[in-house]
Computed example of a mutant assay.
Amino acid sequence: MSDPGGVAGDQLRAFVERIERLEEEKKVISDDIKDVYAEAKGTGFDVKILRKVISLRKKQPHEREEEDAILDLYMHALGMNGPANDA
C-alpha cells in the first residue's frame, strides 16, 4: 500500500523494525564480547595483544606478510628496529 508520497509505509516499517532488532542483537553480542575480554584480562591475559591476535587471525597469511614487510620498511625509514631485526 503506497502513501501519497510514493512510500510503501508497511514495507518501510518492516525494514525499520528488522534493522532495530538486528541492532539490539548486535548490542547483546558486543556486550558478550566485552565480557569475554574482561574474563581474559581477569585471568592475566593482555587484552590489547589478544585483540591484535584476533585481528591477525582474520587475515590471510599473505596479507599479514605484506603488512609486516611494509611495517618493517616504515620502521627502517624512521631509523627504528623492525620486527625482523629484534632477534
Rank of each mutant, 00 (worst) to 15 (best):
52 K>D: 04
62 H>C: 07
77 A>H: 02
44 G>T: 05
85 N>D: 15
80 M>N: 08
7 V>C: 07
2 S>W: 13
7 V>K: 12
37 Y>Q: 01
78 L>W: 03
72 D>M: 06
15 F>G: 11
43 T>S: 11
42 G>N: 09
30 S>Q: 02
8 A>Q: 05
24 E>G: 14
14 A>F: 03
73 L>W: 13
86 D>E: 15
33 I>L: 12
50 L>S: 04
58 K>F: 04
67 E>A: 02
6 G>I: 03
20 E>D: 12
1 M>K: 08
59 K>Y: 05
79 G>Q: 12
15 F>M: 08
80 M>D: 10
40 A>Y: 12
66 E>H: 10
65 E>D: 03
52 K>I: 01
67 E>P: 01
62 H>Y: 10
54 I>H: 04
32 D>G: 12
77 A>S: 04
23 E>R: 10
11 Q>F: 10
55 S>E: 13
12 L>F: 12
65 E>I: 07
85 N>H: 11
51 R>T: 09
7 V>R: 15
59 K>C: 05
30 S>M: 06
44 G>I: 14
52 K>A: 06
1 M>Y: 14
86 D>M: 13
6 G>C: 09
17 E>P: 03
50 L>F: 01
82 G>K: 02
32 D>H: 15
81 N>S: 14
16 V>C: 11
58 K>A: 05
23 E>T: 08
10 D>L: 13
71 L>A: 01
16 V>L: 14
57 R>E: 07
60 Q>K: 14
71 L>S: 00
8 A>D: 11
46 D>W: 09
32 D>N: 15
20 E>H: 11
2 S>T: 15
10 D>T: 07
82 G>L: 02
80 M>P: 02
21 R>D: 13
51 R>D: 14
9 G>W: 07
19 I>R: 03
48 K>S: 13
53 V>T: 06
30 S>R: 03
6 G>N: 11
66 E>F: 13
24 E>R: 15
14 A>N: 09
23 E>K: 07
9 G>P: 04
77 A>E: 11
5 G>E: 00
67 E>F: 00
35 D>C: 06
71 L>E: 05
77 A>K: 02
51 R>V: 09
29 I>P: 00
13 R>T: 08
40 A>C: 10
62 H>N: 09
10 D>M: 11
19 I>E: 01
68 D>N: 12
11 Q>H: 11
80 M>K: 07
17 E>H: 05
59 K>Q: 10
23 E>A: 09
40 A>P: 02
31 D>L: 13
15 F>Q: 12
5 G>C: 03
47 V>F: 00
18 R>G: 06
38 A>P: 01
83 P>V: 01
73 L>Q: 13
30 S>G: 03
15 F>V: 07
10 D>I: 08
81 N>G: 07
71 L>Q: 03
7 V>M: 15
35 D>V: 08
73 L>D: 15
